[in-house]
């Protein structure tokens, strides 16, 4: 029975995408997120310049692109972590440009980070509890009266325990998050994001720095999100993973969306091949490109350092 519904959700998602064009900005039947003309510049460098993109509700959409394509910067714009220089986007029809990050999350659009942000000096359980919304005890004055928030805290704890069970972290409940392995932190971050109760989950490189043994279980969790009715948008480098779990792929290069399409065919698209191999591989790199590459290399280095620490 369970297997059937799984297929049904996947089938439903794929059916929606079946007849779509593979042009950038192609309209979707039921978009949860609609993005228009988002631009972000750093000095002379245009990091993001996305004309039009729609994300289909109830699907798993992958956002791929070569290093320095502006994927993370794009994520930052959408989730309110950085201010776009121009552009607008709507989530469930509500305009979201200029909305601060915490309001974006409250609306049901929750992100994770490329470099995991597990709060290492809080316990796993405290990390989870933090994700719950509308907590009475988070108000300064009510915090002073434990009776006013104890009941809600128990409910939150119960919900957190269920999620920890599912993500196989229940045994680590009272450990400091800092003692977890890289993969476990990714799991914790995803579980914590679910505590918010999101409609759209945005994962920034969920597989980066994860031990291959854990990859399958992580993939399973991402697929599960769709089964529960959530929409997933994720940035990833690993093409096998993209092919395995995504229903639709959006390709970015040099800040712009250059192609969209189903995972099986998108990799044979000439525009994508050019972007990855570099249509300009015979032309010398411009100063900006060189700088961007430096930047990316630095981010990766930092990621490695962070992972080791």
């Amino acid at each position: 029975m369970h297997a059937d519904t799984t297929t049904a959700k996947k089938e439903a998602a794929l059916a929606v995408f079946a007849g779509l064009e593979t042009e950038p900005g192609v309209p979707k039947p039921d978009p949860i997120l609609v993005i228009d003309k988002v631009v972000r510049r750093f000095g002379g460098l245009t990091a993001v310049d996305v004309d039009h993109v729609e994300i289909q509700r109830g699907s798993i959409t992958a956002l791929i692109g070569p290093n320095g394509a502006g994927k993370t910067t794009f994520f930052n714009q959408l989730t309110g972590f950085d201010t776009a220089d121009a552009g607008s986007w709507t989530f469930n029809g509500k305009p979201m440009n200029g909305v601060p990050a915490h309001r974006v999350a409250r609306q049901g659009m929750v992100r994770t980070f490329q470099l995991t942000k597990a709060l290492s000096k809080l316990t796993v359980m405290e990390n989870m509890r933090l994700g719950a919304q509308n907590q009475r005890g988070e108000n300064f004055f009510r915090a002073l009266i434990p009776g006013s928030w104890r009941g809600q805290e128990d409910e939150i704890t119960e919900r957190a325990e269920e999620l920890l069970e599912r993500f196989k972290l229940a045994a680590k409940r009272d450990d400091f998050a800092g003692s977890l392995s890289g993969g476990q932190r990714k799991l914790l971050e995803m579980a914590r994001a679910l505590m918010v109760g999101p409609e759209l989950v945005m994962l920034d490189e969920p597989m980066a720095g994860v031990n291959p043994a854990l990859t399958q279980s992580l993939l399973g969790h991402v697929k599960n999100l769709r089964e529960e009715g959530m929409t997933v948008l994720f940035v990833e480098h690993d093409m096998d993973m993209v092919r395995d779990i995504s229903d639709w792929v959006i390709v970015m290069a040099q800040g712009a969306v250059i192609a969209e399409g189903p995972p099986d065919t998108i990799m044979s698209d000439q525009r994508v091949i050019d972007a990855y191999l570099g249509a300009h591989h015979d032309a010398p790199m411009s100063v900006e490109e060189a700088e961007e590459q430096l930047h990316e290399a630095e981010a990766e280095l930092e990621a490695e350092i962070e992972e080791k620490a």
């Binding site: 989730t79 972590f81 601060p100 990050a101 915490h102 309001r103 999350a105 409250r106 929750v110 992100r111 994770t112 980070f113 942000k117 597990a118 709060l119 290492s120 000096k121 809080l122 405290e126 990390n127 509890r129 933090l130 994700g131 919304q133 907590q135 009475r136 005890g137 988070e138 108000n139 300064f140 915090a143 928030w149 805290e153 914590r192 994001a193 505590m195 918010v196």
Partner: peptide, 20 residues
Amino acid sequence: PWGRVLKAIREDEDAVRSLG
């Protein structure tokens, strides 16, 4: 829970922001 949010901010405020 108020104190929990505070301690979380000390750790990583972007993470706390992403949790609403």
